[in-house]
Simulated assay, not measured.
Amino acid sequence: MITEQTRHSLDGIFTRAVQSRMALHAGDTCEVRPLPRDRDQHHGQEQDSKSMVVLTISSLHFRLLMMFHIDETPETQAYFAGEVEGRCFREVFYETANLCCGAVNQELLKHFPDLGMSTPFTLDSRCAMFLRELDPGFTARYAIVINDTLRLSATLCLCDYATVDFAWDDSAVEEVSGELELF
């Protein structure tokens, strides 16, 4: 069982993480807005995108999947890898998505000890239509708009193995950067 308090907390944690990690340059804007909840998760922008970058945070009580749906357009590639000479788009996007997932992980560690986090990997976006096979207790979709022009979407999928209940205090968020995390 996943409480409404937990759903609200995950929404806040994810939104804050995306806004602080996906906007790469000072002065960039990053809008994150929830998309309507649907029983069918394999439509809309996810269907239009070609790739899905997936990361997981796992504990004994739950597994949280974070999926970023991307279309590797020239605009998307230019934003994420354009200024990093000699590095490919996926490499830079993986690092950005990993930073975002790490920010979520740090907040969840305050409530759940012993979390594990995966490295990013890419799946074809059509795999999203099989999310229901995981029997998630909670799924949320988000539109992400950077600088009013670059559009991505994301899906959070929480599979619960026990009751998941916590409250996130958004006023107590510390801004931390540059820490090395060992796995």
Results as ranks from 00 to 15, higher is better:
T3C: 02
H8V: 13
H8D: 13
H8N: 14
H8W: 11
L10C: 01
D11V: 08
G12I: 08
G12L: 13
G12P: 08
F14H: 03
R16G: 11
Q19V: 07
A23K: 01
A23C: 03
H25G: 09
D28V: 03
D28R: 02
D28M: 02
T29F: 04
C30N: 01
C30I: 01
E31V: 13
E31K: 11
P34T: 14
L35S: 05
P36H: 10
R37I: 13
D38Q: 15
R39T: 13
R39H: 15
H43C: 12
E46M: 14
L55H: 04
T56R: 07
S58L: 09
L60A: 15
F62N: 03
F62L: 04
L65P: 08
T73L: 06
P74I: 05
P74N: 06
E75H: 12
Y79W: 02
Y79N: 02
A81G: 04
G82V: 02
V84D: 11
E85R: 15
R87W: 15
R87I: 12
C88H: 15
E91F: 10
E91M: 11
E91D: 10
T96C: 06
A97L: 07
N98F: 07
C100Q: 05
G102I: 00
G102S: 02
G102V: 00
V104K: 01
N105A: 14
N105I: 08
D114K: 10
D114E: 14
S118C: 04
S118V: 02
F121A: 09
T122A: 10
D124R: 11
D124H: 12
R126G: 11
R126V: 12
M129S: 15
F130C: 12
L131Q: 12
R132K: 14
R132T: 15
L134W: 09
F138A: 06
F138R: 05
T139E: 09
T139C: 10
Y142D: 01
A143H: 10
A143Y: 09
A143T: 10
I144H: 05
L150F: 04
L152H: 05
T155R: 02
T155M: 06
L156S: 02
C159A: 10
A162W: 09
A162N: 10
V164I: 05
V164N: 00
V164F: 01
V164D: 00
V164A: 00
D170A: 10
V173R: 06
E174C: 07
V176L: 08
G178T: 03
E179C: 06
L180Q: 14
L182S: 11
F183Q: 12
F183C: 14
